[in-house]
Design a protein around this nucleic acid. Structure first.
Length: 602
RNA sequence: GCGCCAAUAGCUCAGUUGGAUAGAGCAACAGCCUUCUAAGCUGUGGGUCAGAGGUUCGAAUCCUCUUUGGCGUACCA
């Protein structure tokens, strides 16, 4: 697991404000304890002062519950809150802000004018970097995700994997990490041989060009064909195993077919990546790393970490971690999933000595990674403790589970096209063709935002139901809604720029932002950095998604109820335009973390 | 059988250092467009936070047990 920096981390504006008040309240509590109880020791038993956010804005912006001290002071928490408010309010060197009591809570209303001014400066100064922090500064973090098989195209499950991997990488970078995104192409093994055998038997020299379909889909067709063939003639299963043996022995004919078909699949997959905004810094191929895995396992046998059965297979006994025995090499000497992952990990650490390697892989493989990490530790690699499995749950459909046998697996390309077409028809229905310009490109951006947002708004750990039509729905908590808010602000700013010269002499005045919605917006903007930290610490993109929705919803209500460009006075127009510009900057920065394209118009 | 994970509104999901009346969206119903893009805004109804115990001033949140569901426990990946 990645360890964030401790106190070195830069604190955000809201954190600073909270910390300042917290220290003040703590100090006053201690002084008061000394006065009435004779000693501050009485507070030792009580937990340290907790800081929270009041549930309603009317109650203030920062809250200190007094429950925990009631016992020490033998006083109702309400009374204690009042006393502390009175004592603190009497001080002359208080930071700006207002103390109030709400029942058993001592709350602080922060000075929005000052905060707005500070936020305005930060957002303008930092721009696209606003919200970024340094809790992972100096850390080299490798993130593995996607990892397609070369015998079929990507499906909906990969899309969740890709979305999480891409988002986590962006979030870690935003927290200062040096991130290397890596893919592992699963291009060898019995399953790969299956599509090759079927192609040999039924292919008739068909190619993606001659068939007019993407290479990954073509190869996938033969993988499915093999399954049918296998049903009719169970003997072919052994043929696949024989072919794998030949492949590992370097049989030229097998290798040339393998190269050809792998190329087809990878070309097709590359196109899907391009459409869905996925990219990698480095590709690993199991065909290149499995030998290192095999050698390492054999070394392990010599070291006595593993043992060989009479039939030649190699095993590890996992009693130490309360698991069973696990095979590492087959009796025919060919390697397995685990074997090649050992080689891959070692070769990666050699290439780029990471502080952490995060595997974004479905939770069904939790056991596999537990074993893998243990094996590497037993082999004596000190970095084995830096490996982390980010498990995510399954993606189901409203109709139930996706089952390849029943053909209910949702193909990634088909889904993306379907979403794009829905977006296109919506643009046409709203007669926005001229406004958006390139309808196809805009529709693809909407489809992508819809897809990523839907997939990322759910906590990765949980299984989820993916509803395609709901994801692209243009009303409600969806990607298109978020994009729409960005487009609306962009449109306002464009209109403002036409008259900007009339406002040249007018400076931003934060004290004019006195509406409830404005206070809330300023606070939300100020709190973005904390959300980025939280998302990084927990490896959880859904924190960003939730923030985006909250900010968008609040902005939406704000501009609906209050004029921006036609605000009653020029200074107010300036202040409000500046505020919504800040909202846009933060929206864009947050979009970038969850794969939502920014659209100037939609 | 054993292990890991989950369970919050009819549906999909938020909700962590334990804290104020548990929140959104969809669906339903009712309003709002001569006004910065109505892909919007507002309101109404809707909850045994799976159940039972426990810890605590205070539990959706922590602990124990139970129930239900998912996943795993391959010489597949």
């Amino acid at each position: 697991m990645v360890r964030p920096h401790g106190a070195n981390g830069e604190t955000t504006m809201m954190q600073q404000i909270r910390n300042t008040w917290k220290e003040l309240v703590e100090k006053e509590l201690a002084i008061y304890a000394t006065e009435v109880l004779g000693t501050a020791e009485a507070l030792q038993g009580a937990p340290s002062l907790t800081v929270q956010k009041p549930p309603k804005p009317e109650l203030g912006d920062v809250a200190f519950p007094m429950f925990a001290y009631a016992k020490s002071f033998r006083m109702a928490p309400n009374k204690l809150a009042e006393i502390l408010r009175d004592r603190l309010s009497a001080k002359s060197d208080l930071p700006i802000g207002e103390l109030l009591v709400a029942g058993p809570y001592l709350n602080v209303r922060v000075d929005i004018a000052a905060l707005a001014t500070e936020v305005h400066q930060s957002v303008n100064r930092e721009g696209d970097a606003y919200g970024c922090g340094d809790i992972f500064a100096g850390k080299k973090i490798m993130v593995e995700f996607s990892c397609p098989n070369t015998n079929k195209p990507l499906h909906l499950g990969h899309l969740r994997n890709d979305a999480i991997g891409e988002s986590i990488s962006a979030i870690l970078k935003a927290n200062g990490a040096d991130v290397l995104k890596v893919n592992l192409i699963n291009n060898r093994g019995v399953h790969i041989c299956k599509s090759m055998l079927a192609y040999q038997k039924f292919g008739n020299g068909e190619t993606p060009e001659s068939a007019g379909i993407k290479g990954d889909h073509l190869v996938g067709k033969y993988y499915v064909k093999f399954a049918q063939w296998e049903k009719e003639d169970p003997g072919v299963t052994a043929m696949a195993q024989d072919m794998l043996k030949k492949w590992e022995e370097g049989d030229p004919e097998v290798l040339s077919l393998w190269t050809l078909m792998n190329g087809w699949t990878l070309d097709g997959v590359a196109e899907t990546y391009k459409n869905t905004g996925i990219s990698f810094d480095k590709y690993y191929y199991e065909s290149n790393t499995y030998m290192l895995g095999k050698d390492t396992v054999l070394q392990g046998v010599r070291k006595g970490v593993f043992y060989k059965e009479d039939d030649g297979s190699v095993w590890i006994d996992l009693a130490e971690i309360n698991l069973d025995k696990k095979v590492l090499l087959r009796k025919d000497g060919t390697s397995l999933y685990l074997t090649q992952d050992i080689g891959t990990a070692i070769s990666r650490h050699g290439d780029w000595p990471f502080d952490s390697l995060i595997y974004v892989v479905a939770s069904e493989q939790t056991y596999h990674f537990k074993v893998l990490f243990h094996v590497l530790e037993k082999l004596g690699y000190p970095w084995a403790s830096d490996l982390h499995h980010l498990a995510y749950g399954m993606v189901n459909l409203p109709e139930g589970k996706m089952k390849s046998r029943e053909g209910t697996v949702v193909d990634a390309d088909d889904l993306f096209e379907q979403l794009t077409l829905l977006a296109m028809s919506e643009i046409k229905e709203k007669e926005r063709e001229n406004a958006v310009g390139d309808v196809r490109a805009t529709s693809e951006a909407i489809a992508l935002g819809a897809l990523n947002y839907f997939l990322l708004q759910v906590n990765p750990m949980k299984d989820m139901v993916f509803n395609p039509s709901e994801s692209i729905s243009f009303s409600g908590n969806t990607g298109p809604y978020l994009q729409y808010m960005g487009a609306r602000i962009h449109s306002m700013i464009r209109k403002f720029s036409e008259v900007a010269k009339d406002y040249e002499g007018i400076a931003f005045d934060g004290s004019l932002l006195s509406l409830q919605e404005e206070r809330e917006l300023v606070k939300l903007i100020a709190g973005f950095g904390e959300v980025v930290q939280e998302a990084g610490r927990d490896l959880n993109p859904s924190a960003i998604a939730a923030y985006l929705y909250e900010l968008s919803r609040l902005f939406s209500k704000y501009y609906h109820d209050h004029p921006i460009l036609k605000a009653p006075s020029a200074p107010l127009v300036r202040a409000r335009v500046s505020l919504v510009s800040m909202v846009l900057q933060v929206l864009r920065n947050a979009y970038a973390l969850v794969g939502i394209p920014f659209l100037e118009s939609m």
